[in-house]
Design a protein around this nucleic acid. Structure first.
Lengths: 301, 301
DNA sequence: CATATGTTTATTATTATAAAAAGCAATTAT
DNA sequence: ATAATTGCTTTTTATAATAATAAACATATG
């Protein structure tokens, strides 16, 4: 076996349904039409038709595809367990890594991990290769991968990089016209922050999501594919680390909300200097929080 | 055949040389020692020894490995044509893409390209996956890759991103102590620029390399893996585009040298504002040059 | 008992191959 | 006649199988 035949099986079962909608003795449409209807290639349709002929469901004769009998439950084929795609893998893998179930420097076992995540080894390999662009994993000289993971240096560099990107966003943001949607969005966010502040004692946990939304909003004003790509990694890392450091979570989040509110205010002033200063203040706190989380989470030098 | 047996052949030939250094009747060292000396696993050594025994070069008897005869020319094994590694592939691929032999939107044929570049299809696949992080290629829904290539938008976003990173570097640079190596390096670069300016009529072509070195130097003061990763892509893109736009190359490069010199001067002033202004001026020119190169190179909307 | 070899197991890179898609040529029905 | 349909061939991709290597463990020997 080489490729999994999910497409064949799906087309097969869909065509069974179509057969049932046609009376006995009636004929099916042309291969081309069926292929277009089911969204697969003619090759697949032909394989399905060949099987239908085999099991006596239809009689193939030239371009005649006459239905011979009703379908039975046994005609249906079982779908094989569908593997994750490379996109779905991203979330699962980062989740695993960022929780630091494994210390930095560990060799990754592609075959075993692939089984664990329910993907083809080859898919994981490919994914690791793309992750290596962010330095989360590195390729070993003679095959294999090593998890570099989230060391203190990594966190520092990531925070710094984040700061560079966000200060740039701020610079763009304050120059935007008053009717730009970002201002309305900031108003909404401000309300959300104030609302959370009122019920902070109970719902301090909700801040993590709000924080992500807030920074995403600020950076959304820059339409740059490189910025966006990094934003994904950055927000993931910060998001997860948020969830670990349980110490002082309530006060920490309350403080952060205040910083966000001051940040929004500064943005509204349209004064680049003031806005960037407010941004820097909050980003510095955020960086410290990330470092503390790392410290708390064992394996960091 | 699965893996290529380069390691086996290398160890084989190296061990032949070792045999020649030992007199007939002498014995080779233990498998462990040989493995450590040649930097391969014991498994490889054992395969080699087994072959040596086969061809009557040595007599294996327990832990005795007695040399029976001198080696002959025919004993040596021919090394198979070594395939490119994924790192070597990067240069070759970007070279191919950036010359825009193919218009944006083209579907990439993995099997064919792999043959062309002399790599395993699987290696190319992995490489494309990592490139997709930079948006140069994108994965198609049901397998396959599409070259997004260097559209005008891509060039604009790349230039903007480059500017963000470099302004950040400048900010760091001007704050560095006078004994930091960067200052001496800038002195050297300044001389190189002046020297090139004198012979610009003849050697205007050399500017491309100098430009790359110059920007690399400036960005080297920031030790950040994300910055560095991007720098690689950025410098490649700019480097290649440099080589196309032949119109006014001499004057364009002469002008750029002047901008670089002013840039160096501004950096020396230690005045962030002045330095960033000079940087911006040059980066804007650079961006325009890139856009012109794209325009000149046919398939851009 | 330390070191060497024999044997087994695990892991990775590459190849071979089945599944799917796409293209072309021949055929049939209107 | 000609448009549509089928039969057959060629390409291309995803995965499974496999050889090469590495590593681990067990046994033997000086």
């Amino acid at each position: 076996m080489a490729r999994n035949n999910t497409r064949f099986i799906e087309a097969h079962n869909k065509l069974l349904t179509i057969c049932d909608k046609t009376e006995i003795g009636g004929t099916l449409q042309s291969e081309n039409v069926l292929a277009a209807d089911l969204g697969v290639s003619r090759t697949v349709i032909r394989s399905v038709l060949a099987r239908f002929d085999d099991i006596g469901l239809i009689a193939l004769d030239g371009r005649e595809k006459a239905i011979q009998r009703r379908t039975r439950a046994g005609d249906r084929l079982e779908k094989p367990a569908t593997l994750l795609t490379i996109e779905e893998l991203e979330g699962r893998f980062l989740d695993w890594v960022l929780r630091m179930d494994v210390p930095p420097g560990t060799a990754l076992n592609v075959a075993q991990l692939a089984k664990e995540f329910g993907v083809a080894p080859h898919t994981l390999q490919e994914f690791l290769s793309s992750l290596s662009r962010f330095g989360i994993v590195v390729r070993r000289p003679r095959g294999g991968w090593v998890l570099h993971g989230f060391t203190k240096e990594y966190a520092l560099e990531l925070s710094d990089f984040r700061t560079v990107l966000e200060l740039n966003s701020v610079q763009h943001l304050v120059a935007l016209a008053p009717d730009h949607p970002i201002w309305a969005r900031l108003d909404v966010l401000e309300q959300a922050h104030l609302a959370l502040l009122e019920r902070i004692d109970r719902d301090y946990h909700d801040f993590s999501v709000l924080d992500e939304t807030f920074h995403e909003a600020i950076n959304s004003v820059v339409t740059n594919r490189f910025v966006k790509e990094f934003q994904k990694v950055i927000s993931l890392v910060f998001h997860y680390h948020f969830q670990w450091n349980k110490a002082d979570e309530r006060t920490r989040n309350a403080d952060a909300i205040q910083e966000h509110l001051a940040y929004i205010d500064a943005l509204r002033s349209r004064d680049v200097g003031r806005a960037q200063a407010a941004a820097l203040r909050h980003l510095a706190t955020s960086k410290q929080t990330l470092l503390n989380a790392l410290q708390a989470n064992s394996h960091t030098l």
